[in-house]
Design a protein around this nucleic acid. Structure first.
Lengths: 153, 153
DNA sequence: CGGAAAATGCTACACTGTTGCATTAGCAAT
DNA sequence: ATTGCTAATGCAACAGTGTAGCATTTTCCG
């Protein structure tokens, strides 16, 4: 069914372990999120479903992504535009920073960078969680720029 | 014309100094942004324009806000939903953090808190700017909670 | 005042996401 | 394997946020 996606056979178990029913869309989306090296928007996921010839519905996909986030199987971050991006893995356990590449538009997780306790807020504020997002050039794009410059403008 | 808004007479000069024409909407929006203690969405601004009986158009308001941001007279930050919030003052000069209150929904500027150079990113990343947003309870809401608890539930 | 350019105010549209509801399909019990 | 309950789906319709195109109005400068 999903010949073009490497199926990490435990997707089904993951879903079942969270008390959900195992469905076509959930399986495919979980695999896509695991495969994708960076965050994917709803639309990106839809495109990959189409590419893998998995029939799907817009609304069902939204609901599937919401469910994965609720269950801690994925996390959601804001993109450069006003669409959410989704990543495999829950957020709770990993309060990490993200990186928006201004060149390719990808959103990457920086697991090793955490806002933590570094900041002293003014009197009265009670922070519970911090969101840290860098903007700039990602390693891939950096390499490409390097190559282009090396090859002479 | 704008009797309910304290008019900081220099709004007009600010606009003129940036080579823009002085118009009803620009004046009113600038004053609203200066008045508002926290970030305002497009819709918040529209509501205040209505309250002040300033006729306005949705699209013009979007364009006015964009223009203010372009000119460095305001800055734009992401809100908890997918609408932008606007604040008086340019971002360039002040790369500060923001605070989303989960209770009242307001977005506040933390001028004193800056991400700066505190973080070591993995090899290859070239950050140009960092966005730091805290979520939690703001001082106002914190005080209210305190009062309610003191008064006995 | 008169004219050029900047802003405005429409209308129409695009994108992202949600709601309601009838239908289908997954899963446990039989 | 069949049955039945309920989760999940698929569809249509809608809501919120923002943008594009373009004719009209306003601002400002001489």
């Amino acid at each position: 069914m999903s010949a073009t996606l490497h199926p990490p056979r435990n997707s089904a178990e993951l879903i079942a372990a969270h008390g959900g029913r195992i469905t076509r869309t959930r399986l495919a989306v979980l695999e896509i999120l695991q495969d994708g090296g960076h965050s994917l928007s709803h639309d990106d996921v839809a495109a990959r479903l189409s590419a893998a010839a998995v029939p799907h519905d817009r609304v069902t996909l939204y609901r599937t992504l919401d469910w994965l986030v609720e269950q801690g199987l994925a996390h959601r971050i804001k993109g450069p535009d006003r669409a959410w991006r989704f990543n495999f893995g829950g957020e709770k356990a990993a309060q990490h920073a993200h990186f928006h590449c201004d060149r390719c538009g990808h959103v990457l997780c920086l697991e090793s960078v955490r806002p933590d306790e570094r900041f002293a807020l003014p009197e009265g504020y009670r922070p519970e969680r911090a969101e840290l997002v860098f903007h700039g050039t990602c390693p891939d794009c950096g390499r490409q720029i390097g190559r282009n410059e090396a090859a002479g403008s």
